[in-house]
């Protein structure tokens, strides 16, 4: 047993590594008996948040890393996503209009929205040249 109950994963800025993120989340949530539908919500939120960093944080064609750590406390699961790319606050992104028709609906722009819808708390800070995004979800 991991008495600290903290886990972490580091990925390069390449979306081909998203299945590794999913495997990591499955492992962590399964070991805590989290329901499959909650796991799917967590998986989706994390994928969207991490893909956003992979695609936009670092200059195109350059290598960068994303650190993902997870902890449990007070009946909640908390993920921290950290990168050293350009400052970007996803909590400031405008909300898409989900009532538009198919013709009016722009392609894209849903990723960050999903993160905010699926998690209970989303907070951002920029510290020591790092973006730090914290995602929290109640599991009890």
């Amino acid at each position: 047993m991991n008495t600290l109950d903290e886990h972490s994963l580091t990925l390069p800025n390449n979306v081909e590594f998203i299945p590794q993120l999913a495997a990591f989340i499955e492992e962590v949530t399964e070991s805590h008996g989290i329901a499959p539908s909650v796991t799917m919500s967590i998986n989706l939120a994390l994928e969207e948040a991490v893909v956003n960093v992979m695609n936009y944080a670092y200059p195109e064609g350059s290598f960068g890393e994303i650190d993902i750590s997870v902890s449990f406390s007070d009946g909640s699961i908390t993920f921290t996503i950290k990168d050293s790319g350009k400052p970007f606050d996803p909590t400031k992104v405008s909300v898409p209009d989900t009532s538009l028709s198919a013709e009016e609906r722009p392609i894209g722009g849903l990723g960050i929205y999903l993160v905010r819808e699926l998690m209970d708390e989303v907070s951002y800070c920029y510290e020591n040249n790092h973006n730090i995004l914290t995602l929290k979800k109640k599991i009890q």
Partner: peptide
Amino acid sequence: QYISSSGLRLFLGVLKSVK
């Protein structure tokens, strides 16, 4: 089994084209 916004983007693209 699962879809993220990248998949939703494809669904919407198909819908726009077919409609």
